[in-house]
Nucleic acid binder design. Structure first.
Lengths: 110, 110
DNA sequence: GCGATGTACTTTGTTATACTATGTATTTGT
DNA sequence: ACAAATACATAGTATAACAAAGTACATCGC
């Protein structure tokens, strides 16, 4: 099997699915901070998100007003930036879910 | 809903899924030429592939030896470049299918 | 016969996103 | 004291979709 092509493919497949997964997770359960999201996705899906991928992604989602963030000081350690999904984010993730299901059906029908 | 973001998202989602769909279609039924593939995907999935997307995609698949092509002269009109999937392509599309199903399951489980 | 439309392939430039690498700063374990 | 883990950020690179434009032949309507 062409492993190199396959690995590139899984990377390309993330373009789109990552934002979908992150929004879905935030929809499912209120608050996450970035570093935690990486671990949560890894735990739930065995998919590794590089830090250099997630932080810019969260900034994009924030610019699009799909998520909001707030800094939370810790009793000890580095402050965390917590994200919550907005109403607009909920509407988008709903459309995404529909589109994804439709896509999955058509792919399976091939 | 943030329509602009959603449209960008569906475009990003194609990165990966298009090659998967094309290989799946070729696996399913022997021979297609580029222009025909665009219409076939449109018919089967309601997804529009720009010509400037498909032709470079087919070239990449050929470079990776996942497909082969041959020119076929027509009695009238422009010659067509017909594509067939290779053994390597079959192996890759098998892995892709497995990965896709796994991804779909984990996304649905969120 | 001529312009518009459809068929069929190609290429160039733009844009979006994932990834690698690097950097900063704090805390915990040994 | 040093390594590893926690937590965020950014710069540079690679990849792939897309719009736009070009080439070339065929057909259809007028």
């Amino acid at each position: 099997m062409n492993t190199e092509f396959f690995n590139k493919w899984t990377s390309q497949l993330k373009k789109g699915t990552l934002s979908f997964m992150v929004l879905s997770i935030l929809k499912d359960k209120g608050e996450y901070y970035g570093y935690d999201l990486i671990n949560e996705v890894k735990k739930r899906t065995t998919i590794e998100i590089a830090e250099g991928t997630l932080y810019p992604l969260m900034n994009r989602l924030k610019e699009e007003k799909l998520v909001e963030s707030k800094w939370v000081e810790q009793n000890s350690g580095i402050p965390r930036k917590y994200y919550t999904i907005t109403d607009s984010g909920l509407a988008v993730v709903k459309e995404m879910t529909q589109y994804w299901n439709h896509l999955n059906q058509t792919i399976n029908s091939i």
